[in-house]
Amino acid sequence: MSAPGTLAFSGRLLRRQLVLALRRPVDIGNPLLFFAMVVVLFPLGLGPVPAALASFAPGILWIIALLANLLTADNLFRGDFEDGSLEQLLLSPQPLYISVLAYVLAQWLVTGLLLALVSPLFAVMLGLAGAAIPVLIASLLLGTAVLSLVGGIGAALTVGLNRGGMLIALLILPFYMPVLIFGSAAVQAVVSGMPAAPHLAILGAMLCLALALAPLAIGAALRISVDA
């Protein structure tokens, strides 16, 4: 009956979060549906000129991915806050840093990873050059991970508030912007025949920074939210 090791516990936590997510398939489907709806709307708004759509495609795809992530960020800790699970997590003998990482990883697997995997379909719908699609996937994989980590800070800070939805957007949107800039720039670079590696490298650096710091901030924010 001894306490499980950190790795065993985080694996168990990851599994718990994934099972919880999979039992609410609507929550997984919502961001994807949002993605599809907005992609369908753009040709109607911009006019169905393939060349114009193709040139806007990197920006469009990245903005939608960002907003889809923003939509889900608020839910990261809310359920666990309301039913008292967060109190138990904070009292657990396990390192909070790792537990928080497991939370964010679970959320990223059902949002960011899925968005990155379905993005080629939407890229083709918008007429994005085929050569840019691998870079689009890579930039979304790196970028949405940063977005999930940063979004987790906002979610942890606002979880105690009843109507945190708008506040979380205001809090974390500024930190989303660099990701958007370098993410869409990476795709844009390939389209215009430039190397995308520098942009992806910067996204990778952002991910390293977020991995190192965001769980600390999330943990501290959760303690404040549960304390209040």
Binding site: A3, P4, R12, L89
Partner: peptide
């Protein structure tokens, strides 16, 4: 089994 308190296996 997956209790979030992480106290025991």
């Amino acid at each position: 089994a997956w209790h979030i308190s992480g106290a025991g296996s």
